[in-house]
Simulated scan of single mutants.
Amino acid sequence: MSVTIKDVAKRANVSPSTVSRVLSDSSKISDKTKKKVRKTMDELGYHINFNARVLVQKSTKAIGIVMKHSASQSMQNPFFPEILRGISAFCHKKEYSISLTTGESEQAIFEEVIKMVQGKRVDGLIVLYSKEDDQVVPYLLEQKIPFVVIGKPASQSNQMMYVDNDNVQAAKEATEFLIQLGHERIGFIGDDPTFQVMQDRLNGYREGLLTSGLEVIDAYVKDFIYGTDRVKQIIDELVALTIKPTAIVISADVNAFAVMKELRERGITVPEQMSIISFNNTILSQFSIPPMTAVDIQTYQLGYEASRCVIELIHDTEMFKHSVIIPTIIKVRESTCIPKIAET
């Protein structure tokens, strides 16, 4: 026979209404009472009837996660499991579940978002990207459902909450780090240029060069989407230049792994012949060969803060729409060094 709210109330010596308020995390119940009731639930093996709670509270206690790409493609990038870990940590704390989009195309992901919203399957959503010509964010604005974007919105940023790094400044600092080592010929390899984060990092790279009195050389600026063969062509083009770069800023560490592999196959050593600094600083960065100097964007914290913001917005839909900027840190490892030309 299943344990009921009345059973919990009797054992904890409180009223059934108090147990209900604990389940909804009511501010009217003290932390001491909440702790006692929750301990009793654990002792009795009480499990919440989520379907009944949805009917009573008109709440799913679920957050929808809108993936940048299909789930299968996204999970190949260590950035996404880490950001989901941060999201899950705060959701668990507030007893929210999460639901991921699983579509294999942008249109399929958009259609899943519509189903989440129209079917009232979630109380709010976290969009894991900011992109030009995106269908999802305008739709969520139109539907007036609580949501938070991870990344600076491409437009209408004053109408929504978002969590991000200052990617322009972070890329500027990454470029200046290489300049301080003595590099003057610095390239940039980005990923999908339709995403705002890539545009911001490219702009920061350019600022870093220009403020140091160095020229932005178009032939040094490349981009490719991870998983494609274009990286081979990019490295061929850079190697074929009469005056080659001695260092590269790379906008994502998964792309940096692919670049380092291609350099190694051509007998170009990192960092002696080519210094590399990347973004994200996922756990694999410290295990690359050589360990990679990276801009730590604090991915876990991005997810944690996005989760906190959307749950706050669910509870107060009229709250001021603001941004949260997570600081970045350069983790210096072995993929960068003083260029040989600066030593002679």
Rank of each mutant, 00 (worst) to 15 (best):
M1D: 09
V14S: 05
S17M: 15
S17Q: 15
T18E: 04
S26I: 13
S27C: 07
K28F: 10
K28I: 15
D31Y: 14
K34I: 09
V37D: 05
K39M: 14
T40P: 01
Y46T: 04
H47M: 09
F50S: 06
N51D: 13
A52M: 15
T60V: 06
A62S: 13
A62Q: 12
H69M: 07
S70G: 15
S70V: 02
A71M: 12
A71D: 07
Q73L: 15
F80H: 04
L84Y: 04
R85I: 05
A89Q: 05
K93P: 00
Y96T: 00
G103I: 07
S105C: 05
Q107I: 12
I109K: 05
V113Y: 02
V113A: 03
V117C: 06
G119R: 03
V122E: 10
L125G: 00
I126R: 00
I126P: 03
L128C: 14
E132S: 13
D133C: 02
P138R: 02
E142D: 14
E142Q: 15
K144H: 14
F147C: 00
S157H: 06
M161E: 09
M161L: 10
D164R: 01
D164C: 11
D164W: 01
V168M: 12
T175P: 14
E176Q: 15
F177Q: 09
L181E: 12
I186D: 04
G187H: 08
G190F: 08
D191T: 10
R201H: 09
L202N: 08
L202Y: 15
Y205F: 14
G208Y: 06
L214N: 03
E215F: 05
V216I: 12
D218T: 11
D223A: 10
D223Y: 15
F224I: 08
I235G: 03
I235F: 03
T242I: 12
T242F: 08
I250N: 04
V254F: 11
E262Q: 14
L263P: 11
L263Q: 07
I276Y: 07
L284V: 14
P290D: 06
P290G: 04
P291L: 08
A294D: 13
D296S: 00
G303P: 01
A306P: 00
A306Q: 01
S307W: 06
S307I: 08
R308M: 14
R308T: 02
I314Q: 02
H322S: 10
S323Q: 11
T328V: 10
V332L: 01
V332M: 03
R333C: 01
P339Q: 11
E343G: 01
